[in-house]
Amino acid sequence: MNNIKKYIAFSCFVVAVYYSNAQTAGDYRPWMDSIYSNISHYFYDAGNKLYYEEYAPGEKQVHSFLWPLCALIQAANEAAVINPSVNYVQPAVDAIDQYYTTATPLPSYQASVVKEKKDDAFYDDNQWIAIAYIDIYNRTNEKKYLDVAKAVYDFMMTGYDTAAGGGLYWKYADKTTKNTCSNGPGILIALQLYKITDDKRYLQTAIRLYDWVNMHLQAPDDLYYDNIKIPSLKIDSVKYTYNTGTMLQSNVLLYNITHEKKYLQRAEAMAASATKFFYRKNKLPGNYWFNAVMLRGYIELYRINHDKNLLGFWYDEAERIWHDEKDANGLLGRNVKKKSLIDQAAMLEIYARLQALK
Rank of each mutant, 00 (worst) to 15 (best):
I196A: 02
S85H: 10
H63T: 14
Y36M: 15
T177D: 07
Y44I: 07
E78A: 12
M215V: 08
L188G: 01
Q110F: 00
R201L: 10
I189H: 04
P220F: 02
W212N: 05
D120T: 02
D97W: 08
V336R: 09
L209P: 05
R296G: 08
T177M: 13
R280Y: 05
Y36K: 13
D147Q: 14
F43G: 01
Q90H: 14
V89C: 06
L254N: 06
P91D: 07
G330E: 08
L311I: 10
R334Q: 11
I299F: 11
R353D: 00
Y123W: 03
L295K: 03
Y172E: 06
A267G: 14
K175W: 02
Y240L: 14
K234V: 11
I82Q: 04
Y100K: 12
G159I: 04
N214F: 10
M1L: 11
F43V: 03
Q204F: 07
V86N: 11
S37L: 12
V93P: 00
I136T: 03
T101L: 13
V89S: 09
F13T: 15
Y210Q: 02
D147A: 14
L193Y: 03
E349L: 13
A149Q: 09
T162K: 15
I350V: 13
H259I: 07
K281N: 14
F10G: 08
Y133I: 05
A269M: 12
G47M: 09
D33L: 14
Y302T: 01
E317H: 07
Y145S: 07
R296I: 02
T176G: 11
Q74P: 08
P84A: 06
W212I: 03
G167N: 03
D221R: 11
A75M: 10
N38E: 08
T102S: 11
T162L: 10
Y315D: 05
